[in-house]
Design a protein around this nucleic acid. Structure first.
Lengths: 343, 343
DNA sequence: TTGTATGCGTTATCAA
DNA sequence: TTGATAACGCATACAA
């Protein structure tokens, strides 16, 4: 009685044929008379028949639904990824079921459980900051259950991931600052546990090293939360002490970069004349603030598209899971704006 | 064979009892010996049993899943709404299946169709800009299918919606500008078709009227896309002509406000001294740009929470659909920053 | 070319 | 206190 949901049976009754005939006619199976096909389709149309996806899922153990596990929706980068995921999924006839973990491991696990009980066909996951142990994923992978990790990739053999070239992005950003004549470059780094943070830090270190600049460990400070308030405090502390006062900031994310910029303004330090600043992610506001913020753009939408395409190809067995040996790494792009260009 | 998915049958076989006994034992039905219950639960635990949600959906015609139809994910306001939706849904044991329409009516319709065939329990929808005819929703409502509209509400009797008090927000914003001594206030309005745009315009008009300021129709310009580029062009055109040059902008969204601000900067007009600017939505960047942007904050997260709570209450028949007579309107808050405060 | 029977995993009804 | 059976909507192996 749901929403005029006619079933195959209804059509069968109406025409006085069996439901298997109807089923076959609707799917253009060979060995069904054109006459029957025509009639069945006509009635189906008239009754506004829509196949019941749930029954199909049960029957086929396939739901044409993929589960997306994401730390936070209210995050520009992640929202662009979701957008890419949605696009591809919809185009290929898949539903997207979304769960945000708020960076909590418990929620990550429970979301995975409920999604599994919903017979989803595969996972797209960016795990939480709390996740350091990957057993819950490994178990699934061992069963051959398709998972594609994006942005944050685990240290697991046999796992497929789509990430951004954090190292390269950080390397270019730092090099850019060096070329602009900044020499005491501080790094506001992200949560140490995340590989993306580690890679960015490494890019920063290598850039300094390769340009003959010694790394000052006092210049590397973690901003775990990634808010501008947090970074403001951190930057302020660095600026206060003449011994640790840098002449540039390379931040692991844009919010932190803005926090540093505010701290500079507040301390009467001119950006970019006396202080260069570069962020990471290229949030929308980068071009809107004054001075506009140089930032490393991450192809979020592309990441969503690539990882979803990959996942669906695996699900549909267009490609073998094991054939994807190397992690997919997307290029970043340094967008140079005012905050890092000396007059 | 899926992911070690043991079924009730497996447990039954293991214990040599019938599957109905197992089913009952697991749900603590009365009339099952404690002994049996214990055994069943033990085996269930050991086999890592998880009920198959798909089979349940088929059996009960309930999926514990709600469908969310949203124009755009990459939009600060909407992403906060999604966050609120997720929060409540997860807490109450529901899945969220998400579809973004990209403001296309066709996609809206097809998403609704596929979600329906997935037996979702209800809809949370913010329809597309293209949607002017609400037949596809009305049909569902007539069947008693639960839908809660958020942010954008249709002109339909018997529809439930959770919106923001756009009129009040716009009224306050405009009044604030007037109190600051701005008199020629232009309005960059949103897509005329949307009620939110209409309400904001009305708030603007009434504020002017109530303060004895005549409305200049040349000052009201539509920015349909809502990008800063578009608004930049519009503002630039207004500023060029001395006859239409305003001394303040009230924009229907923050991006447009930024566009106007850029046009002013480019024309050498000082904000806020010579030009007041107020936006709508309070995007994250408002406090980060220079001068910081006064904006009308919309409680997006709250909107998500309220509308989801409402929908689930209706689905679970905690409240009657018809008992919700009046649309729920959430209050906005004017956040005064530098862009509109004259020294 | 079409129909019958069975099963996907679960629960509700009826019987024992 | 427990078991057998049917049903949710569909697809398919097998029969006719």
């Amino acid at each position: 009685m749901k929403i005029g949901q006619a079933t195959i049976k209804d059509i069968a009754n109406e025409l006085g044929v069996s439901s298997s005939t109807v089923s076959r006619a609707l799917k253009d199976y060979p060995g069904i008379s054109d006459e029957t096909k025509r009639k069945v389709k006509e009635v189906a149309e008239r009754l506004n028949y829509r196949p019941n996806a749930v029954a199909l899922s049960l029957r086929k153990s396939r739901s044409y639904t993929i589960g997306v596990i994401i730390p936070e929706v209210v995050h520009f980068f992640f929202s662009t990824v979701i957008s890419g995921i949605e696009e591809v999924a919809q185009a290929r006839g898949y539903n997207v079921i979304l769960s945000q973990t708020n960076e909590s491991l418990d929620r990550e696990k429970s979301s995975i459980d409920t999604m599994l009980s919903n017979q989803i066909d595969g996972f797209l996951v960016s795990f939480s900051k709390e996740t350091t142990d990957f057993d819950h994923f490994e178990k699934l992978l061992n069963f051959g259950f398709p998972i594609v990790f994006f942005d944050r990739s685990p240290d697991l053999k046999e796992s497929i991931s789509v990430t951004v070239d954090d190292y390269q992005g950080a390397y270019e950003a730092t090099t850019h600052l060096i070329h602009q004549g900044y020499t005491s470059i501080a790094h506001l780094k992200g949560p140490s546990k995340l590989k993306i943070s580690q890679n960015r830090e490494k890019g920063y270190r290598d850039a300094l090293y390769n340009h003959g600049i010694e790394v000052n460990e006092d210049f590397i400070v973690e901003c775990a939360k990634g808010t501008n308030e947090e970074a403001y405090g951190v930057a302020e502390a660095l600026l206060k002490n003449p011994q640790t006062k840098p002449d540039a900031f390379f931040a692991s994310n844009d919010m932190a970069a803005v926090g540093a910029m505010m701290a500079c303004k507040n301390a009467g330090i001119k950006v970019p004349e006396e202080m260069g600043i570069v962020g990471f992610s290229n949030w929308q506001f980068c071009s809107m603030i004054e001075p506009s913020l140089t930032s490393v753009a991450q192809p979020g939408y592309q990441m969503g598209v690539r990882s979803t395409t990959l996942l669906l190809d695996i699900i549909e067995k267009k490609i073998e899971y094991d054939s994807v040996k190397d992690p997919i790494v997307l290029n970043t792009e340094l967008l140079v704006r005012k905050s890092s260009v000396r007059m």
